[in-house]
Amino acid sequence: MTENYTPTSEQAAAQANETVMRSQSPVSPEQTTSTVEDIITAYPKKVAKKRAKHIVVRDGNEPTQEIQANARTTPGIITQRGCAFAGCKGVVVAPFGDCIHIVHGPVGCSYYSWLTRRNQFKPREEGQNFIHYCFTTDMNEHDIVFGGVGKLKTAIQEAYDTFHPKAITVHATCPVGLIGDDIQGAAKEMSDKLGISVMSFNCEGYKGVSQSAGHHIANNGIFKNWIGADQETEEIPGYTVNHEVRRTSC
């Protein structure tokens, strides 16, 4: 450290950009390209054509390179992606530890999204803590055949009676959409009845191409139903931010 020179922030940013642009992978571009080609040719022809657009070998001479994304996964591929339910309940909504999240569906979806994402939660003073709990309507064959709305409403009532939460969320799983359970209606009805926020998410697993669809469903719901709901909050002085961390894996 012999220099006393301190770059301005603009200079530093420019320098960093330059460094990144000039950086070279230790593997030659030719080698990388041939590896990718090997991978792509292993697929059936049609699949290969699609898959090829999802992998790009960076070329410093090309100013803009495009990568295909947000498209459906080809059936049969051992994808690492999850589903809309996983993105909505599992990723975005579950970390709210002070309200109750009821999964409307067969038992599995609630079970696999129970404590597996290692979200830490500490209740505020006098606050409630449901982070270690798993709630589900545990739908059985009868519910699938004759509809599960009644069971859902009873479950919301039971959750309210036992735990007295400030809010309840309801999450749909695949069969719920198919059998046509009106969970939005049920949530509205129970919200009016109990006088607390009961919000439902139509995050059936088959929606969209991955868990990403679930993130959108969750965020839309939270924006519509929760944000701004408290009309009495006074303006908070000073520079303030809300912090959302994007989570992408399932």
Partner: peptide, 28 residues
């Protein structure tokens, strides 16, 4: 849906700490 497969593979992997392979029909 591919979420089912993802959940089952993840859970078995957590239990066995071994790669668990399974494919899915990836319903939409």
């Amino acid at each position: 849906s591919q979420g089912c497969c993802s959940y089952h593979r993840s859970h078995l992997t957590r239990h066995y700490r071994d790669p668990i392979m399974a494919a899915t029909s990836s319903f939409t």
